[in-house]
Amino acid sequence: MHQKYMYIFIMFFVSFLIRVLPLTLIRKEIKNRTIRSFLYYVPYVTLAVMTFPAIMDATAQPMAGLASLLLGMIIAWFGGGLFPTAIACSVTVFVLEMIL
Rank of each mutant, 00 (worst) to 15 (best):
C89K: 01
I30L: 03
R33Q: 15
V91F: 11
L70F: 02
M73L: 15
M11D: 03
L39V: 04
A60L: 15
A58Y: 02
G81Q: 11
S90E: 01
P84L: 07
M98N: 09
L21S: 00
A58C: 04
M63G: 03
K31A: 12
L47P: 02
F38I: 15
V95Q: 03
L21G: 05
R33E: 13
V95E: 02
E29A: 14
G80R: 05
M6Q: 13
A76C: 07
K28C: 10
R36N: 02
S68A: 13
H2G: 09
I26Y: 07
Q61Y: 14
G65Q: 09
L21E: 01
P43G: 02
R19H: 07
N32D: 12
L23E: 00
T51H: 04
T92G: 03
G72I: 10
G72L: 12
L21K: 08
Q61G: 06
F16C: 06
R36M: 09
L17E: 00
W77N: 06
M63K: 04
W77S: 11
F38Q: 09
I87L: 06
V20P: 02
A76L: 11
R27M: 04
E97N: 12
F16H: 01
V42M: 13
T85G: 09
F16A: 11
R19A: 10
G81I: 12
I26N: 00
V45F: 13
I74R: 10
P62F: 14
K28E: 10
T24D: 02
M63A: 05
T34Q: 03
I87N: 00
D57G: 06
V42P: 03
F13K: 10
P84Y: 12
I26W: 00
T34D: 10
I26H: 07
L69A: 14
P53D: 12
A48L: 14
R27L: 09
L39I: 07
